[in-house]
Design a protein around this nucleic acid. Structure first.
Lengths: 238, 238
DNA sequence: CGAAGAGTTGAGACAAATCAAGGTGCGTGG
DNA sequence: CCACGCACCTTGATTTGTCTCAACTCTTCG
């Protein structure tokens, strides 16, 4: 891969020139079609996966066979950093599957860890990223206890909308509704009904996979009612 | 504070001798009685708080005035690391209140960050700690979507029990039931009823604040039914 | 003794999951 | 081109889980 690529690549942009060289010899670039299993349980615990473009779902199966969504990754998200310090038997692995056509690069966790260890700017940049992720997880926990289903959907849409800076927004859902429901910890039926109440409560409609937000503030008024933050809360999408 | 203290103190045990000197001049030790407000919103975003001994609750107030528990800290837990990179206006602050008599030390976030930046062993050790925290948050999210109230209580008790290595265990709840209910995202009434079902479903009873677990495995059977992990799952208490 | 705080219990309301039945859009094979 | 199957989504009926409100008990502490 081109060295110049990494210089725009999330936390890697802080990598030292020397390590940049080393790194480019360690990574492998891959292209996968929608629906491909990218990592199985075993691979996940030794592989650092960086998503250049597309959408990837991370998931596990619970002991009674249901799929549990761990996370949904988008451009410049990554996974695997939690295994830096893990011994084999402590692992809590997952599977990764593409839910769109995707472009990724991978490298082994251990070699990334060596890079990090020898590059204090890189490690600071990673730390910053991880703390942001942690903030997001804190928000998720909070929302699961104070928001109802319709509000969780609305909040997700607001965060997608935040990428644009308009009053009226139209965009396509990045993946199917069943998966989004699952990501937001509700069943598909609840998702469908909750979206109806969202339409009733504020100026937002859905046509197939296309969302029309006619007034962002009306959505925020309904969604952020019980939240400890104030909209616009500038969180990342996931 | 004694230099030797930090050498046994969570991730600080990896601090270099030189930084250890510097650090000991930066920290302030405090003792607070149960019920003291240790940090207000403003202080929280500039203060690193390390809990040497006792229990501290971190909380916020939502826009409709309800208290939302962010975390409950115990020996060797800390808070404030999320502000390393935060600009003033991005802050998502909280309050900290002691829920037992406590012993803590504090230092400013910025001076801790300088220490971290100049000490790669220390920063690696911090990173490890933070990744553990992140794992725990992931687990919390997962549990909120797949466990019912009784299972969440049971899971909390199992994690407290994991500190001991016996079949039959008796211990005292470290803080009152209302707070625990809130920490587990349920109301006090639900906590009370859910504990009754727990007693019915497995060999566990409660007498005041004292929990008797007569058979750890019977609890695990009920609690871990839908989980993606296998008991004993060796998570930290909080 | 009385007041306050913590915990429990019951009744009713409400939210979400489950179960069951249809609808819609789409690609494939005839 | 149509017909079929299939995946995705929606809707309705029912059940389950949790919250809310209110009443009551128990303990503690002045």
């Amino acid at each position: 891969m081109a060295l110049s690529f990494f210089s725009q690549c999330g936390f890697f942009s802080k990598i030292s020139p020397k390590n940049l060289e080393i790194m480019s010899s360690l990574v492998k670039q891959h292209f996968y079609k929608k629906g491909t299993l990218i990592l199985n349980y075993e691979q996940s615990s030794t592989t650092f996966l960086y998503l250049i473009k597309g959408w990837v779902k991370l998931f596990k199966e619970s002991s009674d066979g249901k799929e549990v969504i761990v996370d949904i990754l988008n451009n410049d998200h990554y996974c695997g950093e939690q295994f830096f310090f893990k011994k084999e038997h402590e692992n809590d692995p997952y599977k990764a599957q593409s839910i769109s056509d995707v472009e990724v690069f991978t490298m082994s966790i251990s070699s990334l860890y060596q890079l990090i260890s020898s590059d204090s700017h890189l490690s600071a940049s990673l730390l910053q990223d991880i703390l942001r992720k942690q903030q997001h997880l804190n928000m998720e926990v909070e929302h699961l206890s104070i928001q109802n289903s319709a509000q969780r959907i609305g909040c997700f849409i607001l965060r997608l909308s935040a990428l644009q800076d308009e009053e009226k927004i139209t965009f396509r859902l990045p993946f199917d509704k069943g998966l989004l429901a699952s990501r937001l910890s509700m069943c598909p039926e609840t998702f469908s009904r909750a979206f109806n109440t969202l339409t009733k409560e504020c100026e937002i409609t859905m046509d197939g996979n296309v969302i029309h937000v006619n007034n962002v503030n009306s959505v925020a008024r309904y969604v952020c009612e019980h939240c400890t933050k104030v909209f616009p809360c500038k969180e990342s999408i996931n």
